[in-house]
């Protein structure tokens, strides 16, 4: 496997880079969209059931189907990596909206009243009190999204998008195990790397959780 990697390292590194970008961008976009949506679903209670239902329905669409339908909807080419980014952003938002709404909802009433009494206005209270308290739950949702994104990106290799999934399709066509095992290994390592980064960021963002030993 190591020999195989050495012989093809340029190409494999390129695929690894694409794979990382194609999984990371949707996480970022998904979080940026899910935060305000989740807040809205929390702020206006009547929005919560429809938002959660639509998110659940979007989540049922198999990824290969979405990769193929998006070019028709977005007027992009089939091979355009944009389709993958948009599809995975859809899944990430679908997963995170509910998590964000529930996380904001789990902030206790006492904390909210204390913050208000200390002079926080609505926006300040949201940014400086509610969101930080919600960080661990949102991070947990983000970790699940990250791991599933890394796995889903490789499905796009079936329609020819260059990423680690190419190792699977190449290996399959040649009946050769080595590239497939290498691809599985690299993609698990990539998932682990994302997982660690998210945990680390969540830890940095919540210093008070470290101050008191549990």
């Amino acid at each position: 496997m190591i020999d195989y990697y050495r012989q093809n390292s340029d190409q494999i590194n390129g695929w690894l880079g694409w794979h990382a970008r194609l999984s990371a961008l949707p996480l970022l976009f998904g979080l940026l969209i899910a935060l305000p949506l989740g807040w809205l679903a929390r702020r206006y209670r009547w929005l919560y059931p429809p938002v959660v239902t639509v998110a659940g329905l979007l989540y049922t669409i198999p990824s290969l189907a979405l990769f193929i339908l998006l070019p028709g909807l977005l007027k992009t080419r089939i091979l355009d990596p944009t389709n993958v980014v948009v599809a995975l952003t859809v899944y990430t938002v679908a997963l995170l909206v509910r998590v964000v709404a529930d996380a904001l909802g789990s902030v206790s009433e006492d904390v909210l009243q204390a913050a208000t009494a200390m002079g926080y206005r609505r926006l300040g209270r949201l940014l400086k009190v509610e969101l930080p308290i919600a960080v661990p739950v949102i991070a947990a949702g983000l970790r699940v999204a990250a791991v599933s994104n890394v796995s889903l990106v490789s499905v796009a290799a079936l329609i020819g998008v260059p990423e680690l999934g190419q190792l699977f399709t190449n290996g399959f066509q040649l009946s050769y195990q080595t590239p497939i095992l290498l691809g599985i290994l690299l993609s698990v390592l990539l998932a682990l790397a994302f997982d660690s980064v998210i945990q680390l960021v969540a830890r940095v963002l919540t210093p008070w959780r470290r101050a008191v030993p549990r």
Binding site: S148, F168, G171, Q177, I180, G183, S187, V188, L192
Partner: peptide, 19 residues
């Protein structure tokens, strides 16, 4: 198990078992 890429598992098992 959730971190394992499905396409990778599928191609691997087919190559391993089909022959």
């Amino acid at each position: 198990f959730r971190a394992l890429p499905t396409v990778g598992l599928l191609t691997f098992f087919v190559i391993l078992i089909a022959p």
